[in-house]
Design a protein around this nucleic acid. Structure first.
Length: 429
RNA sequence: GCGGGGAUCGCCUAGCCUGGUAGGGCGCCGGGUUGCUAACCCGGUGCGCUCUGCGCUCGGGGGUUCAAAUCCCCCUCCCCGCGCCA
């Protein structure tokens, strides 16, 4: 959420930004917000004036009673006030809600380095690492490979839960856990605090961390309860300090969340529709940081570096793109996607998304920092994937696939799998 | 699920019965005093506005009243005990 004071004082800064995003409907919304806010302030001042008069009368009545004088005249005047105040309150409430609703729909201010572009085809590559492996055999789709190795059962998962779910089996479960354990240990070594968050959140907390439309399209609701399954551990970590003042001495707070996550909308899959490139349920290690505003751009690079380091350690080629204005979404001021190499798709595909949300999330969550009794400020928040399995698993399965149908285990994961260096079909052990 | 107890300006707490400017302690900030970074004294320490001023704020909503933290009704959340339970 943007600062209403910025909207009042520097609307042109916001307008320039919206032009970069090619978002004329938001520019119109901005004009509406400015008007609603002006009307709100006017109505509020009028209501306050009436309240002041009411308070004066109330005090006068108390004094008159003490002095034993008549209060008749004062009571008469007081009786007319509540109706007028109620009418103005209804107006101010309505306008305040419109202003807040408008602010929630206005996107964050972009960092100057965000490239202008219409969609993900115009993201700008800023780094590339590793050489895609060339193989002289046909790679199997990961779902065929897994079913041949009996490492996953999509059909039975579909039977009991529907499309978008899978039974991981045998060594694939261990590979999943190894990826998560490796990534979590890496994060802890970087000084991050491991977090295992609640997997469900109440609506009021959730409203602080997602767009309102996400309730309908992305999130699972628990029937009969005010609870939603988390779509990423970014959400419970972001909401952790909702309505609190963080002691500034505690900043930065760097968290590494481990959770399963649940998403209703899994969209199109491109090549290899069957499989777990996009799932209703998957696991992830997520980086999340609360920091001082002046430190957030350094942290943004650090989170990106962590993501790159993890994929380099796995020896999976990747590139990094600076996500353009048409693809960046509303919350981030700047976003890097790290795209792993998927040889079967012959393409780089997103495996990590790394955002600096500046003060946009914190303002909405009412998470402040400072000293009690002193200056307060909104901390900046950042989030980035460290390792999302499903996609991380697919990346390993495609990049480490051998012609005999076995899959090599990346060196850094072997300690987490009891030294095992290859995954084969049962019977080959 | 049943019973009980709670929610007050960062934290702790008074006020509620008996309606009339929400008081104190801790912490923090600023100033004073002091041989001293201790103790002590003074002021400040939630949000909003058209900001010398005013308004709002006692978990949320409604009601009674000139006036509600206080009285009445509804709701939410938290804690304790019992029950169920991995």
């Amino acid at each position: 959420m943007l600062d209403i004071r910025l909207v009042r004082e520097s609307p042109d800064v916001i307008r320039r930004d919206l032009a970069k995003r090619n978002a004329p409907e938001k520019a119109k919304l901005l004009d509406d917000v400015i008007r609603w806010d002006a009307d709100w302030r006017k109505a509020l001042a009028e209501a306050d004036r009436l309240r002041r008069r009411r308070n004066e009368i109330t005090r006068d009545i108390a004094d008159a009673k003490k002095a034993g004088k008549s209060t008749e005249k004062l009571r008469k005047e007081a009786a007319t006030l509540p109706k007028e105040i109620d009418a103005l309150d209804a107006k101010t409430d309505e306008l305040a809600e419109k202003v807040r609703g408008g602010l929630l729909r206005l996107p964050n201010l972009l960092h100057e380095s965000v490239p202008v572009g219409k969609d993900d085809t115009e993201n700008v590559e800023v780094a590339r690492w590793g050489t895609p492996r060339r193989v002289d055999f046909e790679l199997k789709s990961h779902s065929d490979l897994l079913e041949a190795l009996r490492l996953a059962d999509f059909d039975r998962a579909r039977k009991i839960a529907g499309a978008g779910f899978v039974y991981l089996l045998g060594d694939l479960v261990r590979l999943d856990q190894a990826l998560l354990a490796f990534a979590l240990n890496y994060m802890v070594k970087q000084g991050f605090t491991a977090v295992f968050p609640p997997f469900m959140m109440r609506r009021d907390a959730y409203e602080g961390v997602v767009d309102l439309g996400d309730f309908e399209t992305v999130m699972y609701k628990i029937d009969g309860e005010d609870l939603f399954l988390i779509a990423t551990s970014e959400h419970p970590m972001g909401a952790m300090y909702m309505d609190e003042i963080i002691d500034e001495a505690d900043l930065p707070i760097a968290l590494a969340g481990l959770s399963t996550q649940f998403r209703r909308e899994i969209g199109g899959h491109g090549v290899d529709t069957k499989g777990f490139f996009r799932m209703h349920q998957f696991n992830k290690i997520e980086q999340f940081v609360f920091c001082r505003p002046e430190d957030s751009w350094t942290w943004h690079e650090k989170l990106r570096a962590n993501g790159e380091a993890i994929y380099r350690a796995l020896e999976i080629p990747y590139r990094v793109v600076n996500v353009c204005t048409g693809d960046i979404g509303t919350v981030a001021a700047k976003k890097y996607d790290i795209e792993g190499w998927f040889p079967r798709q012959n393409a780089y595909r997103e495996v990590i998304s790394c955002s600096n949300c500046t003060d946009y999330q914190a303002r909405r969550l009412n998470t402040r920092a400072g000293k009690v009794g002193g200056e307060k400020f909104f901390p900046h928040t950042l989030n980035s994937t460290a390792m999302a399995t499903s996609r991380g698993l697919v990346a390993v399965l495609e990049n480490y696939q051998e012609s005999d149908g076995s899959v090599g285990v990346p060196k850094v994961l072997r300690p987490y799998m009891g030294g095992q260096d290859v995954i084969r079909a049962p019977g080959h052990h």
